[in-house]
C-alpha cells in the first residue's frame, strides 16, 4: 500500500487527490451490483492484509501492493475496495492518515484500474498462459505506476521532496519484480480454477 502519512503533502495536492478519489469511488459504487459486494469485500480484505505479508527479496523483504490483481478482478470497484482497505489500515494500524486518504486511494486505485482495463482488453482467448503473462505485466506495471504517482505527489508538494520522490521509485523496483511473478501466478490460477472471476468484472 502507498501510505503517505498526514502532514507531508501540500494542500492543492490533497484536494486534487480527494476529488479524483471521490469521483472514482462514486463511479465504482454506482456500478456495484449488491450481489457483487461480497466479491469486492474479499478483495478489500486481501488488499488490507497484503501489506502485512512480507516476502523475502534479496537482502530486504518487501510487502506486496496487489493493485494489479485487484484491478483485474474488480474493474471500477477497485476504488471503493481500496478506500475501505486504506481506512481500515489507517484506523487499526495508524498506516497513512485521514486527510491523505484521497491521495493514497488515487495512487493505488488509478494504476489498478488501468492494469485491469488493459488486461481485459488483451486477454480475449481465455488461455491461462496468456493470463499469466498479462497478469505479470499488470502486477509489475501497477506497482511501477503507483510508485511514480507517489513520487509525483511528493514532487508536486515541494521541490525539497524531489530526492525522496526518486528514492520511492527506486525502492519499489524489487517490489515490482516480486509482484509481477506473484500476480502472474495468482491470475493464471484464477484463469484455470475460476475464470469467471477475471472475465465478469464491470
Amino acid at each position: 500500500m502507498a501510505h503517505i502519512p498526514d502532514g507531508v503533502l501540500s494542500n492543492p495536492v490533497l484536494v486534487a487527490g480527494a476529488i479524483v478519489s471521490t469521483v472514482g469511488v462514486a463511479f465504482g459504487l454506482k456500478g456495484l451490483d449488491p450481489v457483487r459486494v461480497p466479491r469486492v469485500a474479499v478483495l478489500s480484505a486481501v488488499l488490507f492484509v497484503a501489506s502485512l505479508i512480507h516476502l523475502p527479496a534479496g537482502l530486504a523483504s518487501v510487502h506486496l501492493l496487489l493493485g494489479g490483481l485487484a484491478g483485474i478482478v474488480l474493474g471500477w470497484s477497485v476504488f471503493p475496495a481500496m478506500l475501505v482497505a486504506l481506512v481500515l489500515q489507517a484506523v487499526l494500524f495508524g498506516f497513512g492518515g485521514l486527510v491523505v486518504l484521497g491521495v493514497n486511494t488515487m495512487d493505488m486505485a488509478v494504476p489498478a484500474l488501468l492494469a485491469g482495463l488493459l488486461f481485459r482488453l488483451a486477454w480475449r482467448d481465455g488461455s491461462p498462459r496468456r493470463a499469466a503473462i498479462l497478469g505479470g505485466l499488470a502486477g509489475g506495471g501497477g506497482v511501477l505506476l503507483t510508485a511514480v504517482m507517489v513520487a509525483c505527489m511528493l514532487g508536486l508538494s515541494g521541490r525539497e521532496f524531489e530526492t525522496a520522490a526518486r528514492l520511492v521509485v527506486v525502492a519499489h523496483v524489487p517490489v515490482m519484480a516480486v509482484e509481477a511473478v506473484f500476480t502472474a501466478a495468482a491470475v493464471s490460477l484464477l484463469a484455470r480454477v475460476k475464470p469467471e472471476m477475471l472475465a465478469r468484472a464491470s
Binding site: 461480497p38 480484505a45 501466478a185
Partner: peptide, 17 residues
Amino acid sequence: CWRSVGYLFGMLMVRSL
C-alpha cells in the same frame, strides 16, 4: 517462493469467494 505465494493468494481468493 513468489510464485507459490501467488498461487496461495489465488486459491485464498477462490475459496473465500
